[in-house]
Nucleic acid binder design. Structure first.
Length: 544
RNA sequence: AGGCCUGUAGCUCAGUUGGCAGAGCAGCUGACUCUUAAUCAGCGGGUCCAGGGUUCGAGUCCCUGCAGGCCUACCA
């Protein structure tokens, strides 16, 4: 009695709190109805938010295991040895026909239909709880046996039904018949902002992220099997480096220090080669303070790998092998359909030097040309050459304009101008170039690698060149990292390094044409209607 | 950053020359014990993104802003 009274008081307080929180926002009719249903469940003695449900099977599992012979009821209406199960999921549809009803239950594996009859359940449960108080979107648990309906759908016959979580907001109801989808939630803003709803109502979206996860697992196990060590290096860095990009800045209060969010992992990973590890990799977020597009999100996932005593030619073999392995793990074959193209990751991939690729497409051999010769060649080709562009930049422009978009099948482009690659080792036989390659696929770079520069004297010179670029106004040029140089002066082994844009690889592997469709929560501007909800209290307003 | 497009009920979308704010689904009431976009009868539901302007009258026309999408330019 005391406990019941206490519970009553608690729920009263809770309701008051709910009302207070909700005062900011006017509830829709459907939300009011659902809150009333919530209260009524409680007054029926049902906890709408219980602690557990004993799940013994998934929907897909049951559909898979169902056997007509075993489960089909005989004349008396009962099956010989019906398959029994307990499942949990979300109500996705509800069709009530008087004293019996069908509904679909969705769990992480898929959907299964449930059949429920008034007379199978305790008195009043069907009419008051199931029919009146449960809605599409609610999470419930079902215990029952499997059977096939007259219309042929394998279903679970409900013997026990439990409320697991009452949904207070109506779920968009997507319907489907013979492959045609009705009222599909397609609004991209809605889908990105409320990804949880997107994942509930668009099963193919859930599949994309499952595939992404499996892709990263495949990558990780591929690297682990070869003995490379997965490590974690700082996200907050006093000096950023390893790529050409503008960083995000932040501040550490206790040390009163400006910090940058990393734009690359490279310089820390190579310190670890100095430290004696022979192969290290990291899969992690990098942050670049630049524009958004269908290929760019400010935070994105990179995999970087460094292997001692190897060079970029060896790394090409590894990349081919790894990406082919991933494609087969995901699709059972090395072919992947992306838009109108079928891309084959089967080894070996085409390999062509950057200058040869340019010559192939433009008919011009840019090898060994001076800055001014390059500028006039590029201008001839219709490229807008400005003063700030160095020789390397001009070559990069020509490549980006005439060659890259046309490369659909995976292709290694090798041997880049030295100015573009301050961390790469000079080419062993060609002046002015470094030993670097990019793998291009579907018109976009999917990875970047080189024979790593391990000569600290040359490395300092390259950094200094970057500084003069920075002084000339290039905001993306690198800073000198003295600690990195110090590490290298202790002796860094020759090494091959690799960076893979995980999101872009995921786009190709899942056939998506926007990076936002492979990132669960892509960056968007804050929502106006939510901006004042749960905002900081007044006393912090003095902070900024 | 520039160009084009979009914003109307919980969801998907109509809305005529500027003339009472609409449909389907979802919701509510009722009927229905094998339905599946269940069906049948009835009912309710709107800050037409926001602010300004023109007009007797604006969802509609004009201006400004906000949010989003697509394309183009830079970074991966």
């Amino acid at each position: 009695m005391v406990a019941a009274a206490a519970a009553g008081i608690f729920s009263l307080i809770r309701n008051l709190l709910i009302n207070k929180v909700e005062m900011h926002r006017e509830l829709s009719e459907q939300e009011v109805v659902r809150r009333e249903a919530l209260e009524q469940l409680q007054s029926e003695g049902i906890n709408p938010f219980p602690y557990t449900w004993d799940v013994t099977a998934s929907a897909a599992d049951l559909l898979d295991r169902f056997d007509d012979e075993q489960n089909q009821p005989d004349e008396s209406g009962s099956a010989k040895e019906p398959l029994k199960a307990s499942i949990a999921g979300r109500i996705m549809s509800k069709r009530v026909m008087g004293k019996a009803a069908f509904f679909h239950l969705q769990d992480s594996s898929g959907r299964i239909q449930a059949y429920i009859r008034r007379d199978d359940l305790p008195d009043g449960f069907y009419n008051t709880v199931f029919k009146k108080l449960l809605d599409i979107g609610d999470l419930v648990g079902v215990e029952g046996f499997l059977f096939r309906t007259r219309m042929g759908e394998v279903s679970i016959h409900v013997e026990k039904l439990g409320v697991l979580a009452k949904a207070l907001r109506p779920l968009p109801v997507v319907k489907e018949q013979e492959g045609k989808v009705y009222n599909e939630v397609t609004d991209k803003e809605f889908r990105y902002r409320q990804r949880y709803v997107d994942l509930i109502v668009n099963p193919e979206v859930r599949d994309v992220f499952i595939k992404r996860s499996r892709m990263i697992s495949a990558m990780r196990s591929f690297l682990d099997e070869r003995g490379y060590l997965e490590v974690e290096t700082p996200v907050l860095q006093p000096i950023y480096g390893g790529a050409s990009a503008r960083p995000f800045t932040t501040h550490h209060n206790a040390l009163n220090m400006k910090l940058f969010l990393r734009i690359a992992d490279e310089l820390y990973l190579k310190r670890l080669l100095v430290g004696g590890y022979s192969g290290v990799y990291e899969i992690s977020k990098d942050f670049r303070n630049e524009g958004l597009s269908r290929f760019h999100n400010p935070e994105f996932t990179m995999m970087e790998l460094y292997v001692a005593y190897r060079d970029y030619r060896w790394m090409m073999d590894l990349v081919e092998e790894m990406i082919e392995y991933i494609a087969i793990e995901l699709h059972g074959e090395p072919e992947v359909n992306v838009g109108d193209h079928t891309i084959s990751f089967a080894r070996p991939w085409k390999r062509i030097a950057l200058f040869d690729a340019i010559e192939e497409k433009t008919g011009r051999n840019l090898r060994g040309l001076s800055r001014s010769e390059l500028a006039s060649a590029a201008t001839d080709l219709g490229i807008d050459v400005v003063n700030e562009m160095g020789a390397g930049k001009i070559i990069d422009e020509v490549f980006g304009e005439f060659v890259e978009p046309g490369i659909i099948q995976p292709t290694f482009i090798t041997d880049y101008p030295v100015e573009l690659s301050p961390l790469a080792k000079r080419h062993r036989s060609e002046e002015g170039l470094v030993e670097r390659f990019e793998a291009i696929c579907n018109g976009k770079e999917i990875c970047n690698a080189f024979s790593e520069l391990n000569d600290p004297v040359d490395q300092r010179r390259r950094f200094e060149e970057q500084v003069s670029l920075r002084d000339a106004g290039d905001e993306e040029a690198m800073q000198i990292d003295e600690d990195y140089l110090r590490a290298m002066e202790y002796g860094m082994p020759p090494a091959a390094g690799l960076g893979v844009g995980v999101d872009r690889l995921a786009m190709i592997m899942t056939g998506q044409d926007s990076i936002r469709d492979v990132i669960l929560f892509p960056l968007l501007r804050p929502e106006e209607s939510l901006a004042t909800d749960g905002e900081e209290p007044d006393d912090t307003s003095a902070e900024s």
